[in-house]
Design a protein around this nucleic acid. Structure first.
Lengths: 197, 197, 197, 197
DNA sequence: AATGAATGAGTGTTCATTCAT
DNA sequence: AATGAATGAACACTCATTCAT
């Protein structure tokens, strides 16, 4: 867990190179896709030889799996007690993150590789999708506890209703549309309101 | 003699081969992704020589563009006058179609290739995403005209709210979950109901 | 020998197409070289299908051999009885012809193909080189008969001395240099003069 | 420690392979021509993988350019002070060199490729043609200084007159003819003699 | 540890030629 | 006769991986 797990003999591996390689790999994965990126490109971007990469990760898939695993987990949840504002904040931060790292291309790559390298999509889920969903669900749970949401509501479905429009808009070519987060939150909260009768 | 004008000399092009190539290309595109599939594989699957493919489409991108363009456009809309049932029918047919053609892998490929071959995503949109959205919007418009939906509602946003959960569920590893369509429709219709006051 | 050698049944072959193909082939041979030119290019330039070419000539080599064989033979010799002027005229016409048809590239192609398709160089010799040499030798013979040239001189060697500088200049990157013909003729005639003592 | 600066890490590149590749490339260039030779053939002849070639030279043109550039530059000039003998020696060595490396095919290839890969002809000139011409011109200059040649003579033209018959003979199918060098030298020297009056 | 050399499998594409209309 | 479809062999080049230093 520290710097030198097993002390071992010989020169220790450079931690800077580890990091440089992983970062370069992740950027190339998003910008070129799994099969179109090459280890030579990674090596060049990380200022390292190709063999140095293979020394650490046996195959291309191993490297990219490690690169995805290094993605940062999640942010601290906002805590304003204003359900609508909190949800919108989380959704907007989600969209901003995706846009910053060419996220749709990265998501696409993991989807495209699912049959061949399922670890990629699994890691993407575990590291980025699920933590974000947890944040949203926590806000919804608090809202339910405060009586703002119908007690029996399926909160996982509600989370999908909040995030879904982002994907659907992108697929429709309407990605980045203004107000999408507000629309999604308003529609969901309206649908979840208690005592509709 | 007669219509010799555009009769066309020489051996006519085999329509079976056309179809076999396009089908093989589409299947391989979904199962392997753009860069991992090869024209040799397409040729082998279609029982055709590689040159026969190049005779019809100049490049790999041309072939796959054509394969995507051959995707069926839209379905006949259901006409039951029952808004909820119609929407659910459309969404379920959408999900079934996606599953039948390994649709998420195909979508992933098009997303991953967006930077390199944007025509793929464009065609996927034009041929599959937008027609489906049109169907949904027509049902919503009729519902609005019948007074079931608030007059000022943004119906495009509503369409994204209907389709979005499908994508979000898939990304969360909850793809194919029972009742997703009903949940999405119920939430959306509840949120769009008129006279909330 | 006429248009329809053996009358045969069916439609007679189009003579215009024959000519168009041969001309296109020759031009492409000079501009692209044997291996870099393609029968598709010939077909396109001659406005004919590839099969029409194969109908007349079995292989690419056959076609190009025929194209070279169609090169025009030689010009009528000038007859001014002025040896120097006549030689210069012939040499300049030779250079002009070579330049007009990208002759050095054509010569290069035939030389390069000598091991593989020796007919090409043989035809080039027979149709273009040797006729020109004959012209030069005739002028020299008349000059010798008139006593302007030493009786025992080797006239074939003299012909090579007249033509050679053209090739040597081209190889040295001095091709097309002004006055080369005059220089060559003057040097040769000076060397061939009788009664040097 | 010491000159570690440009010591170079990793496995050193095999010099034998370098040489084997270049030699094989040159031989195939002369025997097959630029477009008809293949890198597979070079690899096989040099007992090397195709990738090993590409590791050293990025493209086919690069490789063949390097192969031509490796041709030996010039010979030591003979220094017998006997102008006629020296010129004949140089010319005969020239002819022998050309024959040894299938020179006319090589020249043909460079001429044929001039439009497409002009570096080939340029290198052939620089490495083989021009050094040889320099040798000849030096002998002629010394002869002129000794008064054996008319002072105002154009020595470059004289060089072309010396070398030219070799090319002209080859084109006429008289290549390798006995005595060509003596004939060329005698004719040129006779034409260049001073005080013809 | 780190590097660069070396490789075999594979890519999309071109082409001369043959086949069916 | 003339055409266009169809093909197999070949091409230059790339890449992930292994080997020697």
């Amino acid at each position: 867990m520290g710097e030198t797990e097993t002390k071992g003999a010989g020169r220790p591996r450079s931690a800077e190179k580890d990091a440089a390689i992983l970062q370069a790999a992740l950027e190339l994965l998003a910008s070129h896709g799994y099969t179109r990126m090459s280890l030579s490109q990674v090596a060049a971007a990380a200022q390292v030889s190709k063999s140095t990469i293979h020394l650490r990760w046996k195959t291309k898939a191993d490297l990219l799996t490690a690169a995805l695993a290094a993605l940062r987990m999640a942010e601290a949840p906002p805590a304003s007690r204003d359900t609508r504002a909190d949800l919108i904040t989380i959704l907007k931060d989600f969209a901003a993150t995706v846009e910053r790292v060419r996220g749709m291309a990265l998501i696409g790559t993991c989807l495209a590789e699912e049959a061949h390298t399922p670890e990629l999509l699994a890691l993407l889920r575990e590291r980025t999708v699920l933590p974000r969903r947890t944040l949203l669900r926590q806000v919804l749970e608090q809202a339910r506890d405060r009586g703002e949401i119908r007690p029996g509501a399926d909160l996982e479905a509600a989370v999908s209703a909040l995030l879904g429009p982002f994907y659907a808009d992108y697929m429709a070519g309407r990605g980045g549309r203004m107000g999408w987060a507000e629309d999604a939150v308003d529609l969901a909260l309206a649908g979840l309101r208690p005592t509709d009768t």
